[in-house]
Design a protein around this nucleic acid. Sequence first.
DNA 1: CTGTTAGCGCATTCAT
DNA 2: ATGAATGCGCTAACAG
Lengths: 200, 200
Amino acid sequence: MKPTIYDVAQAAGVSIATVSKVINATGRISDKTRKHVHSVMEQLKYQPSMVAAALTGKSTYTIGLTLPDLANPFFAEIARSVEDRGHEHGFNVFICNTDNDPDKEVKYLSLLSQKRVDGIISATRIQNDQFLKKLIQQNIPIALITGEMPTLAVDTVMVDDYLGGFQAGNHLLELGHKRIAILVEDMDNMSNRERLRGCK
Amino acid sequence: MKPTIYDVAQAAGVSIATVSKVINATGRISDKTRKHVHSVMEQLKYQPSMVAAALTGKSTYTIGLTLPDLANPFFAEIARSVEDRGHEHGFNVFICNTDNDPDKEVKYLSLLSQKRVDGIISATRIQNDQFLKKLIQQNIPIALITGEMPTLAVDTVMVDDYLGGFQAGNHLLELGHKRIAILVEDMDNMSNRERLRGCK
DNA sequence: CTGTTAGCGCATTCAT
DNA sequence: ATGAATGCGCTAACAG
């Protein structure tokens, strides 16, 4: 079995409280016992259980990232970055491919909430804003990226579709082009409308 | 606050033991109270805490996937698949970009162990087999993919480099090509050696 | 500076 | 068929 905080306490001849304190560097403990406990810890190769710690209210150091499809290089790149930043701060990230399926999305979101992630980053247009609202009420930090959610007050980082369209159009004009075509998959899509708007 | 099992029990006029039983469909409970508890649960929008459940010994429904770089389409594809299968079975997967850095790898691996993942899939040649051994001792299921680890007894799925090389070479020969070149980045790499071997 | 104790939310005997 | 009690591993007051 993996050693617990009790094993360390016993082996070090102190109380679990003391061990806990040296682990989290909280409270006051003599330099001597601190070092002693530390040595015992690594001798036993002790590693605190994050699930137990999480149960007491501490954060899980886990965040969820929802995106349509990881196989899409655009999102893979995003995932890579999020993961990088996460790792820098000691976080692990859950990848959630929603395929833009509302059901999968809700399923993922509720799973993430049950696992008490510290936050969620969504690179998908969250379709069920009813559910989104619930998450917000649960005080789960949420950041939207790539999508918009005008009805709710959520931190969002989005791409400036208008500017993008403008720059693209401008670039072509500068090259002297006169006859420019625009291919749009879906005119109901807000992003595309904005890009188009920026273009003319 | 999110409702706990106690809230449900109280609202339903039963004990938490009963609620726990209907949640996990274990033990014997009358059809009547089962339904009643269920209705109370959804009325309170109760969702069992997976971290609490995990602490009692149940699995975390979480697995870790280590790979060199998610931005590499090859691995992104793998991640996508792993995630898909995981989701089908109610699992979440932690993505871990190691960049083939031994330190990052160890850091990730130990984090995963602290978070008590149910298993680990590694798409990287695990460099620290000392650490690998520890994980195995901890009874954490591990599966290697894409890499080899001859020294240890670990489940592994790998690509048949020899066959690949053979097929590639054969294909060109069938097309009637006579002068064939092979570009290899690193001849010390076992995969490449095998591919080359299969080619001639 | 260090130890006791009481939870955190749930699963699990063991009685009833 | 159901409930009371105990423990999982750790943190957080509160006492000494």
